[in-house]
Design a protein around this nucleic acid. Structure first.
Lengths: 210, 210
DNA sequence: TAACAAAGTCGACTGCGGTCAATTTTTTTT
DNA sequence: AAAAAAAATTGACCGCAGTCGACTTTGTTA
């Protein structure tokens, strides 16, 4: 009895997400109106706005779930001592598959997480933090194996690879990369560039070290 | 007489852009309605849509102009034999200043150019191409000076640095980077990482070369 | 220059996301 | 159990972006 209210709220929230998931996957995000979702969830339009701040938030809500799930799963799978670059490719390509499964979904997700509005900044930061938590261990292991410099701020390393991932996804949205293979190839090339360095061999930390 | 129609169209188009520029800078993008712009330009609402496909297109139209202008100017200024990294920082920080001058403008621009909708893909590609044209010469010169590997596809190098730039701008929108100095510092760190490589010294092309 | 075609213009209209004052439902107090 | 307070729900309502068929202007043909 303590949480009668709470329980109802949870059920309503779940009902909204379920209705949304159903409608989104049947007719896409843009073609689904808040009213439709409300009707499908058996509630009034206004009620939705006491559970979510905006339409895109509804979408992001289960995007994030699925996203984090994928990441967890992939990172488990790729944890066993493979080279860093393979681990990263597995991780990011898994994510890309989720994005590319529905271009429209993915675009909103990427736009909202990479360039968030003030309203959704917090949400995006949360997602971002999960990312960092996820990747930092990978990098630490790679450092132990001698695959990664130890004099770097790991958060910048995360940013580096994530930036290259965003760039690649952008290339896909721009129509420069058409197939999943294209994306995988470019991503790998960029990652290799990052690891090997863009300046000619020997130019680099030699300056500092020798 | 041949181009009476054409002339009028040009004037109307210019009038729309002028009205838009005025209204946008006075009350922001979101708070300016198509109707307002139409009124200010002395034409009907529907007419606007025979000149531009959507509201955001109007915005992008003069964004691009200004953008390319800035880039041209900056690349001139930074062309004189400075190290590659300085040239790149000058270029991207100039661009960031344009973006950060109005956060809201910038967000739309970034969203639309990095993750374009089918409708605006062409426009984004054009902008992208101008970018490439702009940066490739910088890289070629850097290669001559021995600052950049010569075994790379330059378009991937452009992508690499642009990806890092996007990542940094994202950090600003996410509230992780607060001042222009923060942005400049992170951008420089990432660029250095890219040039020096993330793997430990010697690991890199040594494998191939030695 | 009269008749016709083509290009350009228009604003009433549609459906949307989001708001809010009024109302209903639940919890707390007496 | 009644009254009062708090929380949750609602749909009419707002201003908006974008559409469309009716209309006007320009160019062409005979």
């Amino acid at each position: 009895m303590a949480g009668l209210r709470e329980q109802r709220k949870k059920r309503t929230r779940a009902a909204i997400l379920e209705a949304a998931l159903h409608l989104f996957s049947r007719q896409g995000y843009e073609n689904t109106s808040i009213n439709q979702m409300a009707k499908a969830a058996g509630i009034g339009k206004g009620t939705i706005y006491s559970y979510f701040q905006s339409k895109s938030e509804i979408f992001l809500a289960f995007c994030e779930d699925q996203f984090v799930f994928i990441d967890r799963e992939l990172s488990e799978k790729s944890r066993r001592g493979k080279p860093l670059i393979e681990q990263l490719l597995t991780l990011f390509m898994g994510e890309f598959q989720f994005v590319s499964r529905n271009k429209e979904f993915g675009r909103i997700l990427m736009r909202e997480t990479v360039f968030p509005k003030e309203l959704t900044v917090e949400r995006s930061q949360e997602l971002d933090n999960k990312y960092i938590e996820l990747m930092v261990p990978l990098f630490k292991q790679a450092q132990k194996r001698g695959e990664l410099r130890t004099d770097l701020e790991l958060i910048l390393v995360v940013g580096h690879f994530y930036g290259l991932y965003i760039m690649t996804v952008s290339g896909w949205y721009m129509g420069r990369l058409l197939t999943e293979e294209d994306v995988a190839m470019v991503l790998e090339s960029l990652f290799l560039q990052a690891l090997e360095g863009l300046s000619p061999a020997g130019t680099k930390k030699a300056m500092h070290n020798e």
